[in-house]
Design a protein around this nucleic acid. Sequence first.
DNA 1: CGAAAATCATTAGGAGGCTAACAGTCAGCC
DNA 2: GGCTGACTGTTAGCCTCCTAATGATTTTCG
Lengths: 188, 188
Amino acid sequence: MPHLMLKDLPRYECLLEAAREFPELDPTAAEAYLHLLRTADDVFALSESRLAAAGISQGRFGVLMLLSHCSGPRNGNASCATGPRTPAELADAAGVTRATMTGLIDTLERDGYVVREPDPSDRRMLLVRLTRKAENFLTRFLPIHFRGASEVMGALSDSERKTLVRLLGKIQHQLATLPPPAPTQKTA
Amino acid sequence: MPHLMLKDLPRYECLLEAAREFPELDPTAAEAYLHLLRTADDVFALSESRLAAAGISQGRFGVLMLLSHCSGPRNGNASCATGPRTPAELADAAGVTRATMTGLIDTLERDGYVVREPDPSDRRMLLVRLTRKAENFLTRFLPIHFRGASEVMGALSDSERKTLVRLLGKIQHQLATLPPPAPTQKTA
DNA sequence: CGAAAATCATTAGGAGGCTAACAGTCAGCC
DNA sequence: GGCTGACTGTTAGCCTCCTAATGATTTTCG
């Protein structure tokens, strides 16, 4: 659900002009910043529209993906081992709250994609399982999804992709070092 | 309000493994694709948390930004000329529906950041205007906002920023050439 | 002139986020 | 054996986004 606002990015001259008023505005930084958000938003929107055409939302699709690579036969591969099964594990893996995951599972269960089953060993817990319908959906849709990603990234060569990943990695690393924001003081 | 799901990106070996099952999955494309969405989501989340600390949401902030560079004195610069004034113009500029803009203006007006005024020349229309409170807010917050963007992009040198913008531009161009998705057929 | 079409902003209802509070269940520790 | 605390999933209420339908107004054109 992209909502970046600012559909049309300001042109570089506008950034330069704004920088005269705000010395904190670094034009090249702002340009890269806005392009990053804008491009990712467009990519996200395309993915979402494809999912919507298939009748599912990003959030729900994410849950199906998380469940898919654990409901199949266990592969011994340690790197891609058992996935989440309980609502709490799904929430942690997806990066949303448990309340949100409850809502997602509600709609997925209503639409017949998953079922909740009690955990025999701990009555507090539930186990979420994909239905046949969900497996059929994934079998049908995942090729479309992967092909879509390949098409988007088809604009870049292999070395360009590596460069992009490297630059994004630097940004990620920078994000990890930045302190969390404190509440803005009302009075100067 | 980022909700990318997939908090932890799959490792490259997992992509390779998945590619054995799905020939449509191009591992380097998927890697770049996921990193792009993930990084932008993190950047967006940081920005949102700073805005939340200042007591405003991304959507509302976007509206204030759109209104800010038009309510001031008219500069003759054609590149940064008059901004939107009516709810419909704001919705178009922001890339949201008019109904959504109505809701945003509702809360902004409730909180005293904007006022609605009737358009004297067309009684269907309204003019949205920033209040003194909103201008004070922007004066106080924009430096924080710009500094935040600079900090994030501080991870990259000037040439790296140029490279990033260039690669993102290629992706944007590719997006523009891709056809819009058709509804997924239920039957193969 | 007057009816049809277009455009305006809004409302209603749904989805997916969040926080906070809740009842049920398990584990530990006197 | 029975508290206490930690953990489970859920509920309730709020926010922002969407689509679709509505009423009011302007514009267009026969």
